[in-house]
């Protein structure tokens, strides 16, 4: 048997930096804001109505709840800006997803590692016509990459493309209206 160990020119490698990414749907920002608002409302309500026996501390309870609500508002605002900056890219051999505001994370999932794909949506996402695309690899306990903020039609197109790659079909460029 012949053993190959070819030299690879690092300069000739495709680079992550040169990939043009496509923004996710602008509807993701309000959708995320509503979901976060519901979570923070619950937390604020718990803080406000938590039974405190000490009277001196109980006087401070509304202020603590107000501070919690304030933190929630800041988190929602930051989440809005962050959602507007999310982007993804689909290359011939991998899927790229960039997210994060203060900490920017770019995740790359090689398609050769893909095992199965799922689409998910909660009622709020469905109201905004959005779908999450969860990509799983071998041996993982959960999804390795979850692409949020895709319009339902585009999510289906991306899913079909990924499933075709899973089935061993050679890569085919998406149609213009489906292209991410």
């Amino acid at each position: 048997m012949e053993f190959h160990n070819q030299v690879i020119d690092p300069e000739a490698l495709p680079t992550l930096a040169s990939v043009p990414l496509v923004s996710v749907s602008p509807r993701l920002a309000p959708c995320q804001a509503i979901l976060q608002w519901m979570r923070w409302l619950l937390v604020t309500a718990v803080v406000l109505h938590f039974p405190v026996r000490d009277e001196a501390l109980a006087l401070w309870q509304p202020w603590v709840a107000a501070a919690t609500g304030g933190v929630g508002l800041i988190a929602i605002a930051l989440g809005w800006v962050e959602a507007r900056r999310r982007a993804y890219g689909l290359r011939e051999h991998d899927l790229i997803y960039r997210r994060g505001l203060l900490v920017r994370r770019t995740q790359v999932l090689p398609l050769v590692r893909l095992q199965h794909v799922e689409t998910l949506s909660n009622p709020v996402e469905r109201a905004f016509g959005l779908v999450r695309l969860a990509c799983f690899t071998a041996g993982g306990r959960g999804a390795d990459l979850v692409l949020e903020g895709l319009p339902a039609q585009r999510a289906e197109a991306v899913k079909q493309h990924l499933l075709a790659r899973l089935g061993g079909v050679p890569p085919e460029p998406l149609r213009a209206e489906e292209a991410p």
Partner: peptide, 14 residues
């Protein structure tokens, strides 16, 4: 043998 990778940059790192 890498399954996937992630590149993270905080504002300090940038």
């Amino acid at each position: 043998h890498v399954i996937s990778l992630r590149l993270c940059e905080s504002w300090l790192q940038r």
